[in-house]
């Protein structure tokens, strides 16, 4: 009789409990009605059960989003934990939807649930992937855009983990700037 490896019998608890949200692009309903929480989880095994069960980001319809946020934080600017924050934003071109989007999103999820941002993990609220015909977007949301050093460290870790080449820069925008932007893009508060 073989004794199973106890590592495989226990679920591995995460530092935080996380919720996956799905935004459906249904123009007959208002924005809030289209945003639904899929489920929340707090173990590695439950994360994979969920991840393996849902469509990859590249296969959801244009106009839709996935978000993964710490349980209790809603994936919107208005949430108390987001409203003074901002996002590290990665813009992807059409070719990258097939080549890189899914691996970027999975890597981002692994950074969140594995607490890869270390001391800055408390600054991180969640991540969003927006599927759009004009170009997909992936972002990490932090809760305080005035925390310069912590914000920079989150950006550097993200760029490093996604293997983004040195000569490509990514920018951080405060939600307050995005909300009040005059043109099509908000100014970058930081770049890495």
């Amino acid at each position: 009789v073989s004794i199973p490896d106890p590592e495989l019998l226990i679920k591995h608890p995460l530092h935080n409990r996380w919720a996956l949200w799905y935004f459906k692009n249904d123009k007959t309903k208002d924005w809030h009605a289209n945003l639904k929480v899929v489920t929340a989880f707090d173990t590695v095994e439950d994360f994979w059960a969920l991840y393996n069960h849902v469509l990859p980001a590249s296969k959801i319809a244009p106009g839709c989003d996935y978000s993964l946020f710490k349980d209790g934080i809603q994936p919107m600017w208005e949430d108390e934990r987001n409203k003074r924050g901002g996002r590290w934003l990665i813009n992807l071109n059409k070719r990258q939807r097939n080549m890189e989007l899914d691996s970027f999103w999975l890597e981002t999820l692994l950074c969140l649930i594995g607490e890869a941002f270390e001391e800055q993990s408390d600054d991180v609220c969640g991540a969003v992937v927006n599927i759009r015909n004009k170009g997909d977007k992936l972002s990490i949301w932090t809760h305080d855009a005035t925390r310069n050093e912590a914000t920079m460290r989150v950006g550097r870790t993200l760029k490093d983990r996604l293997n983004i080449p040195r000569d490509i820069t990514i920018g951080f925008q405060a939600h307050s700037d995005t909300m009040t932007k005059a043109g099509s893009t908000a100014k970058n508060r930081f770049v890495v």
Partner: peptide
Amino acid sequence: GKKQYDRAFLLQLQFANESL
């Protein structure tokens, strides 16, 4: 302390406990 997992460990568990 913070419960941290590196990517290799997380990936290793992707199909490990499907029956749980």
